[in-house]
Simulated assay, not measured.
Amino acid sequence: MTKALLFLSVLSSVFAFAQEDLLKDIDTVQTSTDTSQPAFKALQIVTGQSTKLAAKKEWYMVVAHRFGDVSAGFKDFFGLDNASTKLGVIYGVTDAISLSLSRETNMKTFEGGIKYRLVKQNDSFPIDVVGYHVMGANTALDKDTYPHLRFSDRLSYLTQALISRRFSDKFSLQLTPSYVHKNLYEPTVEDKNQFLAGLGGRYKISKRISVNAEYFVNFDNHSFYKNPLSLGLDIETGGHIFQLLFTNSQINSDIGYLTNASGNWGKGHIFFGFNLYRVF
């Protein structure tokens, strides 16, 4: 009995020390700045892309939803009567390269994209640099409106450099220079070639919640459309990243979001929506 009590006493002491060390490790992870971690938890900051990529052989299912203009009030039930949905999949070819395919109900747009890491932030290099290219096809165009319509007229292209820095466990910032080319465009409201610069950030307010924001300036001087401005909330729930957001663009395809934002924040013409990611 004495030997048993002695053994239990020693075992309890070892367990207590191990538990204390484990708690110290957890505290260290929570308070330190680990540059190996991604600057953003989700693949998008709000609607624009972030420098995070899908891991090798990971599949992501994406559901993005934008309701109608909330300023319509009860008439359209604060936008619930008029919604646009995007469904997509993303596959990590390697840890540094991923492919995506999506389809949005607004303008019936298909988009295919490739995202790849050029440089990763580490102790000796201060930023992440990721390239992102998209080709979109607007299948809503028809020959009744455009009698000489060709397939190439449906196509548009996006090229972006995603440049981010993880300043701390809580705060990350990203700069996104962008270029858009449209084969078919209306010259009275936009240019064929458009250059934009975006700034986005993330601030973590709890273990599983962060607030995000992004803004893009379109240097197309006579554009009829507005500069996209979006605010969001990231919620981490196991294998899900759930993003709630307000934006002045109902379109959530990459190209449409950047070049066809129609809402005006100053007049309350904004759209509520969400992004849902499920990884497999």
Score class of each variant (00 low, 15 high):
173 L>S: 08
113 G>W: 04
214 E>T: 01
170 K>H: 14
213 A>H: 06
212 N>C: 11
124 S>W: 13
129 V>E: 01
149 L>Q: 00
117 R>H: 03
210 S>Y: 07
116 Y>L: 14
147 P>D: 03
124 S>I: 15
189 V>L: 06
167 F>E: 10
126 P>W: 11
168 S>F: 15
172 S>N: 08
192 K>M: 13
131 G>E: 01
182 K>V: 02
207 K>G: 08
143 K>L: 02
178 S>A: 15
210 S>T: 04
170 K>L: 14
158 L>H: 00
184 L>F: 11
206 S>C: 05
192 K>I: 07
172 S>H: 09
194 Q>L: 11
202 R>P: 00
208 R>G: 10
215 Y>Q: 05
115 K>F: 08
176 T>R: 12
146 Y>L: 05
142 D>I: 01
177 P>R: 12
203 Y>A: 09
166 R>P: 05
137 A>L: 09
130 V>L: 12
139 T>W: 09
168 S>E: 15
139 T>K: 07
156 S>I: 00
165 R>V: 08
141 L>N: 02
169 D>R: 15
211 V>Q: 02
129 V>I: 15
129 V>H: 09
195 F>W: 07
152 S>N: 06
196 L>R: 00
116 Y>K: 03
200 G>A: 13
139 T>G: 04
185 Y>T: 01
181 H>T: 06
150 R>N: 11
192 K>H: 10
180 V>L: 07
132 Y>D: 13
206 S>Y: 05
201 G>K: 04
116 Y>V: 00
161 A>E: 12
127 I>W: 09
147 P>V: 01
176 T>W: 04
148 H>S: 08
123 D>Y: 11
205 I>E: 04
180 V>P: 04
176 T>S: 15
138 N>Q: 09
204 K>T: 12
182 K>I: 09
137 A>S: 11
213 A>S: 12
113 G>S: 13
114 I>L: 12
175 L>Y: 14
170 K>P: 00
119 V>Y: 15
191 D>P: 00
162 L>C: 12
155 L>N: 02
157 Y>W: 07
189 V>S: 13
122 N>L: 07
202 R>N: 13
117 R>Y: 04
214 E>A: 09
199 L>Y: 04
123 D>N: 15
212 N>H: 06
171 F>A: 11
162 L>D: 04
123 D>L: 10
173 L>P: 03
134 V>C: 07
117 R>V: 12
139 T>V: 07
215 Y>W: 13
132 Y>N: 14
194 Q>K: 13
180 V>R: 08
123 D>Q: 15
136 G>D: 05
185 Y>F: 13
141 L>W: 10
126 P>A: 14
211 V>L: 15
143 K>V: 01
128 D>S: 11
135 M>D: 01
151 F>N: 07
201 G>P: 03
192 K>S: 12
187 P>D: 13
210 S>D: 11
131 G>L: 14
163 I>M: 08
130 V>S: 06
174 Q>Y: 01
122 N>V: 03
150 R>Y: 01
172 S>M: 10
144 D>Y: 03
185 Y>P: 05
208 R>M: 10
214 E>H: 10
208 R>C: 13
